[in-house]
Design a protein around this nucleic acid. Structure first.
Length: 270
DNA sequence: CCAGCCCCCTGTCGGC
DNA sequence: TGCCGACAGGGGGCTG
């Protein structure tokens, strides 16, 4: 559920609290989520390293450290926050604790244990195969058009393919296709030039709106201060089954596409 | 390259 | 009421 806007909001909410700090300790109650694989090896490599910058790449939270790079992926139900700034007393889903040298604790909570915490020397090991950042200058219409027209697959799963475009997940894929008035079942290479341009604009627009509203709290996502984002109050079609399409009034349909729930307007998405 | 399936997990919800 | 299967959906892996 955390997609680009949600991860970006977490990064922005944490940055001032962690940049400049060094790690003093690390412990986990679910070692399967970490790399290197054993808590001991992970901790001994991490402790003492200082956080130089905090950023985001695709749906990864990226800590650039004095020696290594720390990647945190929230997957479905992950949360990352400073314990002292989180409103609830006890979080039963805390899977990892990072001690910081300012006395605070950085907690990783994850109900479903899908999240990942990885420490690598070379960031490329994680980011090497990722597609372009859709909000960066390097994501151009021409490049998008070139790569899209070479694909024969279904457009919606393609938008969610992190090697094709980084950071788009199920929510923002559905929202982008609605805004661009494109049926999510279309094959990529059948999109004409105008449709491709509409889609390019739509992807950027829905992601920017998501960031401006600090993400969509459909169920588990929270910002590092414990509060919800508000993008869920502005969905066009996602999670809006049988509600009227905001554009034409037809009832929103839900189907399965690529093993994912897919919401769209059967009338004005063609 | 692409579609479809399973798996990793846990909580919620609807049907019986 | 309580059990059970479906579903939620990010990503990796495998097969045809």
């Amino acid at each position: 559920m955390p997609e680009l806007p949600e991860v970006e909001s977490v990064v922005r909410g944490l940055r001032d609290d962690v940049v400049g700090c060094s790690f003093t300790c690390f412990e986990t109650t679910w070692p399967r989520q970490i790399r290197p694989y054993t808590p001991k090896a992970f901790a001994s490599r991490l402790v003492g390293q200082r956080i130089i910058t905090l950023g985001r790449r695709a749906k990864y939270i990226v800590f650039t450290l004095s020696d290594d790079v720390l990647f945190v992926h929230l997957k479905m139900t992950g949360r990352l926050y400073i314990k002292e700034k989180w409103p609830d007393e006890d979080d039963t889903y805390v899977r990892a604790r990072f001690g910081l040298d300012d006395g605070n604790e950085l907690l990783f909570s994850d109900m479903r244990k899908f999240g990942r915490i990885q420490l690598v020397a070379d960031a490329e090991e994680i980011t090497g195969s990722l597609g372009p950042e859709p909000l960066s200058d390097s994501f151009t219409l021409d490049d998008f058009r070139d790569r899209l027209t070479q694909r024969q697959g279904t457009i919606k799963p393609l938008l969610m393919n992190q090697q094709f475009v980084a950071g788009v997940g199920n929510i923002y894929a559905d929202e982008s296709l609605w805004l661009a008035r494109i049926d999510p079942r279309r094959k990529a290479d059948t999109l004409n030039s105008e449709e491709i341009e509409r889609l390019y604009d739509a992807i950027r627009k829905v992601l920017e709106a998501g960031i401006a509203r600090e993400g969509a709290s459909v169920n588990w996502y929270r910002k590092p201060d414990g509060t919800t984002g508000s993008q869920q109050n502005y969905f066009y079609v996602y999670d809006q089954v049988d509600k009227p399409c905001p554009r034409c009034g037809s009832l929103v349909h839900k189907i399965r596409l690529g093993q994912r729930g897919t919401h769209f307007c059967p009338t004005c998405q063609v």
